[in-house]
Amino acid sequence: MTVMRDTAVKALAKVQVQSDENGLIPEYEVLVNLLPVKLLNAFSERIMAAAPPERKAEVESGLVRAAYECGYHTGCGIITSDIFNDVVMPMVTEDEKDILRGAYAAFTAWGWAKSGIVQLKPAEKMIIRALDYYEADSGGEGLRGYMLRGLSQAFFDLAYAETYPDGMDTYVCHQTKGIEVGDPHGEFVVVKK
């Protein structure tokens, strides 16, 4: 037995969330909000377009970093949450590998990225393939899957680096293919920093 993606996706997709008067959702030990993807993409597009050429790399790193910090803390909340324990953990037989499979099922269920693991060498390398993700239909130039880059790096840190919160920045994620540049899918490779 391993984590069965369809089982996890179906169960996790049923989760009901209720925001407070400020629009914030207290879930997974953090405050989550529900905003249109277009808003984030418009922000990314504009800030990248406004950056002078010599600072574009720095701005891009900032966008990935924002996703990473969010993913690291939210991710810890997700994989220790009651719903994850109820739905995913009973199917876990391959430790961290299965937890990561469950995490990408959660990404899919909650609309963050229709994605899954293609290759995984524990604690060393992971290749993710995504058929849909935040920036897949965004405007701009070059590979720009900032969100999934940050999230993938965060989840690999959570799985294989030092125990939360001491394992930040152990791994790094590079994007090698992107729907936004005409590839059939996005591909993200996580390796040691």
Partner: peptide
């Protein structure tokens, strides 16, 4: 993938829905 994620596909079949094959096969 072992978790049922359809990583890649090519061709088509009028007998089997390749999109739905992943979960069943896993």
């Amino acid at each position: 993938g072992r978790d049922g994620f359809v990583i890649e596909s090519a061709g088509s079949s009028n007998r089997v829905n390749t999109e739905e094959l992943g979960a069943s096969l896993a």
